[in-house]
Design a protein around this nucleic acid. Structure first.
Lengths: 140, 140
DNA sequence: GTATGTGCAAACTTTTTGCACTTCG
DNA sequence: CGAAGTGCAAAAAGTTTGCACATAC
C-alpha cells in the first residue's frame, strides 16, 4: 500500500501550525522512512541531508505532530518512541522478540470490529479507535 | 476479574528458574500492583518493604520473567516499560493522552477473532496472539 | 511586530552493564 | 561445589528543558 501525501505543508497548515523548513523535512522523513521509525532513525535520516537541524528541534517537532494528530506514536513494548504517519484505521503485525512491525490492512476486519463495537457498549468507556496488535513471527 | 496466583514459586520453578526471595517478591509485587505497573512503580513498591533488593536486580528479574513468559511487557506509546502479569488472552483500553490502561475481557470478541484468523491467512506471518488496543476516553 | 519556532548544551530519566560476592539446588 | 542470581555503582541510551536568537505570518 502506497501512501498519498502530496501536500505536506497542507497537513501542517491545517492544524494551525506555522510552516517551517524543519517541520516539512521531518514530516517528509517519516513518510519516506515508512516502517515505524524510531526517533533515532528519524534524527539520523534528517541530519544526513540537513545537519543544521538539531536533535532538540526534531524531538519538539515530533511532539507537536503527535499532539496535533498529524502522526501517531506506535505502541510498542520496547521502551522507545516510534512513529507512524498513517492515521487511518489499520493494524500492526509485531514480531515476538524483535523490533519488527509491519502494517496490516484488512477492510473486512475493520468492518467486523466496527460492527461489533457499534452494538457492544463498554461501560464507562467511549471508543475512538481500535488497533489490533497481532503478535507472532514472520516466515519470510 | 480476580487473578488466581496461589503459587508464585511454582510459576518460577516451572520455567526452570531458581527460586529466590527477590524473584518471589518482585512477582508478588506485579500481581499486587495490578494495573500495568511501570518499572519505577515496581521498584518503589518492592523497596518500601525490602530496601535491600537493588534496582539492578529488579530490572534483571523483570527481564528474566519476560523472557520466560511469566509476565509480559505492555505495549504503550509512552517510552517506558510497563508490565502485565496476566498472560491469557485479554485486551486493553488505552486512554488518549494519559497513561491509564485498563483490562478488557470479552469472550465473544476472543472467539470472533480466533474464528476470523483461523480462516484468514496472513501471508508470511504466523499468528501467536492477538490483543486489541482500544483507544478512547474513560467516562468514569 | 509579535507570537511561535529553532539551536545548543546541559540536565534528567530510564535502562543496561560488569564484576565481585552470594545463594540455590 | 558449580551454575545461576544479586548488589553496587558506573555508564549508556533516550528524552526533556531553558534560554537567547531567528522566522513565519
Amino acid at each position: 500500500m502506497k501512501l498519498e501525501y502530496q501536500n505536506i505543508s497542507q497537513q501542517i497548515k491545517q492544524k494551525g501550525l506555522k510552516i517551517t523548513t524543519q517541520r516539512i523535512i521531518v514530516l517528509e522523513a517519516i513518510y519516506d522512512l515508512g516502517n515505524h521509525p524510531s526517533t533515532d532513525e528519524i534524527v539520523k535520516f534528517v541530519q544526513e541531508k540537513h545537519p543544521a537541524i538539531s536533535q532538540g528541534t526534531i524531538y519538539k517537532t515530533l511532539d507537536t505532530f503527535v499532539e496535533n494528530k498529524i502522526i501517531q506514536r506506535v505502541e510498542t513494548s520496547g521502551g522507545i518512541f516510534r512513529y507512524d504517519g498513517i492515521t487511518f484505521m489499520h493494524h500492526h503485525l509485531h514480531e515476538d522478540g524483535t523490533p519488527r512491525i509491519e502494517d496490516y490492512y484488512d477492510e473486512n476486519l475493520n468492518n467486523m470490529l466496527i460492527d461489533y463495537f457499534a452494538n457492544k457498549n463498554i461501560p464507562g468507556f467511549k471508543v475512538h479507535d481500535i488497533k489490533l496488535h497481532i503478535k507472532g513471527e514472520f516466515t519470510k
